[in-house]
């Protein structure tokens, strides 16, 4: 019962956040709505006893990606957006098609397995198990990802170095 109420509240928060994020013309409002969506999602993870995923959701998506988006937006012009309030943009049918395709592809397997799952099965909180999984079977994936991130970091540093202004000569002023 408690879980059900929590589930509906959190789902409502997540869906509303996502809708506002898509609809808002003001970029900053959009980003914060997106963060509300992330927060609702992390609450749902918590409800599924996936604590670590929930924490990482908050840490990475709200903490890091949110800040990254904000930084990117602060570097753009016209943050407030055009005052264009058309409900549906032009290529909407293609968008709908793409969304449906992604939905089907992602949910095909879970939906097939649905009746056989025992929903009431108690799940143990599993930070430790997750750690073992990460280090043992998935260690190569982890390392490759780390390498990729390092490469991105070095690339960012190089890009920042390249942007440096040519040193100005001693001007008389």
């Amino acid at each position: 019962m408690n879980e059900e109420i929590s589930f509906w509240i959190l789902s409502a928060i997540a869906v509303l956040g996502a809708l506002v994020a898509v609809r808002k013309r003001n970029l900053i409002h959009g980003v914060f709505a997106l963060l509300v969506f992330f927060a609702g999602l992390s609450g749902l993870f918590l409800l599924l006893l996936a604590e670590f995923i929930a924490a990482v959701q908050v840490l990475v998506y709200i903490g890091a990606v949110g800040v990254l988006l904000l930084f990117a937006i602060m570097l753009t012009e016209r943050v407030a957006g055009d005052d264009d309030r058309r409900m549906i943009s032009r290529g909407w049918s293609w968008g709908l098609l793409a969304a449906a395709a992604v939905f089907v592809v992602l949910l095909l397997r879970p939906i097939q397995q649905l009746p056989s799952q025992d929903a009431a099965q108690p799940i143990k909180p599993s930070v430790e198990a997750l750690g073992h999984k990460l280090i043992n079977p998935y260690v190569v994936t982890l390392e490759v990802l780390a390498l990729l991130l390092t490469a991105a970091l070095i690339g960012a540093v190089t890009a920042a170095q390249g942007l440096r202004m040519p040193k100005e000569e001693d001007s008389p002023e």
Partner: peptide, 15 residues
């Protein structure tokens, strides 16, 4: 009572 209290701490202070 959370298994990952420390990581939650950091996640939420980041907000």
């Amino acid at each position: 009572l959370l298994d990952g209290a420390v990581i939650f701490f950091f996640a939420i202070t980041g907000l």
